[in-house]
Design a protein around this nucleic acid. Structure first.
Lengths: 109, 109
DNA sequence: TCCTTTCGTTAGTAATTGCTTACGTTAGCA
DNA sequence: TGCTAACGTAAGCAATTACTAACGAAAGGA
């Protein structure tokens, strides 16, 4: 059914850990639908460029974003594939074969 | 559209942090579809009861599970409501108004 | 070749984490 | 009342985290 392979437990460690930092979620939102250079990303925040670079490394190692080089610049973008893998992982944590529609239906009474 | 209110940034910190620990994900899977007592949960793992108790506290404070007292026992169960809130939060991080079906369709080519 | 731009890496620090052992607390029973 | 079962809480420790300042590296002109 799903095109992407399921994330391993170790992948889940890395993904959820990466997502647990508000700064990293902000970065991810910034590159959610377009490529952005490391410097442009860093300019958006009140921490050093170094800190942002380290956050980018964490996100990249978690498979949450892709990197492309263009001269001295490095362009980052969120990986859509990982998003749906995370959706599937959440469903797997809660219960085996839940479909999301049913859960939403339960909540609305 | 959604019945549950969106999770705050702080809630997301707590949720993703709680989920970033493999032991806590295991605990959550254990109580995914039924109430289980703290002692029963602890018996499943090779760490002390104390460690499990602390994990339960982290999960509870993240809103990921509910607690019910029965005599001296405390029964825990995963909160389904939070699952769909997390699904929504993931979509919000990646891009504004994505529907999950479309993403899955993209992946299957 | 020299200089600048754009970036990652290293070293170091205060704060947090997952774990342990030891100690309370509450409910129920004899 | 005393005892036990089933818990949470506190103190402490080695390892990790998010950050800063300082340094290194590579690409592209003048």
């Amino acid at each position: 059914m799903s095109a992407a392979p399921a994330l391993s437990e170790e992948d889940l460690d890395l993904c959820f850990h990466a997502l647990s930092q508000p700064r990293r979620r902000s970065i991810l939102r910034l590159v959610g639908d377009r490529e952005v250079a490391a410097g442009e990303i860093a300019a958006e925040f009140d921490v050093t460029r170094t800190a942002v670079s380290q956050h980018l490394t964490v996100l990249k190692e978690a498979g949450l974003l892709s990197e492309r080089r263009d001269g001295t610049r490095r362009l980052y973008r969120a990986r859509r594939e990982t998003l749906s893998q995370l959706h599937a992982a959440l469903d797997a944590v809660w219960g085996s074969a839940l479909d999301r529609g049913r859960i939403l239906a339960e909540e609305t009474r």
